[in-house]
Design a protein around this nucleic acid. Sequence first.
RNA 1: GGAGAGAUGGCAGAGUGGUUGAAUGCGGCAGUCUUGAAAACUGUUUUACCCUACGGGUAACGGGGGUUCGAAUCCCUCUCUCUCCGCCA
Length: 423
Amino acid sequence: MLEIQYLRQNSSEAISRLTLKTPDAGELIAAVLKLDEEKRISQMALEEMQARINAASKETGDLYKAGKKQEADKMKAETASWKEELLKLEAAAGKAEQALFDQLTLLPNLPDKSVPPGRTPQDNLVVHEEGTVPQLPEGCLPHWDLAKKYKIIDFETGVKVSGAGFPVYTGKGARLQRALINFFLDKATEAGYTEIEPPILINEASGFGTGQLPDKEGQMYFSGQDKLYLIPTAEVPITNMYRDTILDEEALPVKNCGYTPCFRREAGSYGKDVRGLNRLHQFDKVEIVQIQHPDKSYQTLQEMRNYVAGLLRMLELPFRILKLCGGDMSFASALTFDLEVFSAAQKRWLEVSSVSNFETFQSNRMKLRFRQGKDKPRLAHTLNGSALALPRIVAALLENNQTPEGVRIPKALTAYTGFGYID
RNA sequence: GGAGAGAUGGCAGAGUGGUUGAAUGCGGCAGUCUUGAAAACUGUUUUACCCUACGGGUAACGGGGGUUCGAAUCCCUCUCUCUCCGCCA
């Protein structure tokens, strides 16, 4: 949620930034400012009435205590007559505040000034490319065929047990999942992140805090009996741990990481994009989350991006980094880098990580603040990134490392898998 | 699932209709004392919003609603937490 004070004071800057994300930025912001004005007018009227009643009530009490019953009764009657007016003012102020809040929550985050213009993924900027695409032998297979050949992922049985998008990993496939999770968690810990094992069902307030609710309701699985949502990413519980808190400045940056399964309904997806491991309803991911001082958050974003790139390097996967254009960025993000690996048999780039700075967009929803000395609390900046999402990593590992002897496991992982080849 | 208890400031814990935004203790911060530290003593210590603003106002004692001139305090309702029993990884 954007900060209303900022919008009030910097409306033209806000409009130009928001235009990177949506063409009707001007109207959106104008609507918010108008509602803000109305809200303040109704608030002033209400508070004035409340002040009158408070003063009169105090006087009434004093008069009773002084034994001046007649005067007190008279004052009481007069104050009672204001009641109807007060109720009207309360209703109007409540309505105006709600209208402002509703409009404000509709606004996406303002893109950072460095965000490239554009509406579609084609407008994303490739800012880095690294590694060599392997030359695959004749008859190389896409990962779903390799998965079958080596009996490591069973898509059909997953369909039986749950449905499409819920694969079953077996044998070395399951072991590879566990190896990757442990590898990612160990690396994150070495980089100073504290490991968290969070709940994977979250309440509505948490869904609102990180920006999934109310607008992306349909993308999460929901347990209606308990009003709990299955997390689409560990970002949600790990960031919401700090909802409604004021941190000491010295506590920054907060660096947490966590492994969780992630659940996404992915309503409306179909076709080759969802083949094999490319897009699933349930998948494993290790996430890194930071809470940082506003002055340092962009430097932190850079560090997180470099950290994730380092993981891909250790896994010996060719990758590139995209700076997302305004139109392709998520609702809550101010600047996002996507990291994609090249999956050699499919011959396509697969997004395996998204690293974002949300500035105060999430912290304003969550009331996540920090305090410098004796100053008033300020909203902190929140950041997160996948480090990493497993399925597409596995897809690329399988495809890129296929040999006549089997699928070679990168050296960095063999200590975790306990085997050098899947055969 | 059954029975009961509770929800107050960073924490603990008072407060059952009128200077209670809230006693007291602990913690935190500042100061006195000390070579330094501890102890002791003194002071200080919630947050949000609004207003032509070194000042003024409003709101908040789990959420929402009600009674009243006036509610942390009374009533209704929801949520959550804890304890005991049952069930269970």
